[in-house]
Simulated assay, not measured.
Amino acid sequence: MAMDFTHAEITASVIDAAVRLHQELGPGMLESAYELLLADELSRRGHEVERQRTVRIVYRGCTVDKAFRIDLLVDRVVVVEVKCCERRSPVYARQLLTYLRLMKLEVGLVLNFGLPTMKAGIARVINTQAR
């Protein structure tokens, strides 16, 4: 059973877990491995975590049942996109912002485990339209 956490508490917990995971295992694994291990660690910390959740969108009466798939949804309010690339790319944050807008959620994180340090691979994305 998940506890009630604030956005700040959830993102702090996700970032802490990602940093620890990166410090222990380093860069170079598949995104799916980082995603699974991060989800497990967050569950151990008392968070409700959904992996590979499909999201439906409706646009002008047209419904797309599986419009996209998010890596992690933490406590039903924070979307986490896991990457493992050698560089940061602004497209990841833009993609996450689109997901947040379509889901009407406020906060998300892009975590790129492919960089030398986890700190360099963290991008917090805020959807100001959800407020």
Rank of each mutant, 00 (worst) to 15 (best):
M103K: 09
L100Y: 00
L115Y: 10
L97M: 10
F68Q: 05
V74D: 07
L102T: 03
M118C: 12
L115E: 00
L115R: 00
S89A: 13
K83V: 10
M118Y: 01
Y92N: 08
L73M: 09
Y99R: 12
V79N: 10
L115C: 04
Q95W: 00
F113L: 11
E106F: 03
G108Q: 02
L97G: 07
R88M: 15
L97H: 10
V74I: 15
V78N: 01
V74E: 05
R87L: 10
L111K: 03
C85S: 15
P90W: 05
T98Q: 07
C84R: 14
L97K: 12
N112T: 07
V80S: 10
C85R: 15
Y92C: 11
L100C: 08
E81C: 05
K83P: 08
V74N: 11
V107R: 14
K66C: 02
L97Y: 05
E106Q: 12
L73Y: 06
G108S: 02
L100P: 09
F68K: 10
K104L: 01
M118V: 07
L109D: 05
V82Q: 00
R69T: 14
R88I: 11
Y99E: 03
F113K: 12
L102W: 07
V78C: 06
G114S: 02
R76D: 15
E86I: 10
L100A: 04
R94S: 15
K66G: 00
F113S: 14
E86T: 14
A93K: 04
L109N: 06
V78Q: 02
C85A: 15
R101G: 13
Y92V: 07
V79E: 06
V91W: 05
D65P: 08
L72T: 08
L100I: 09
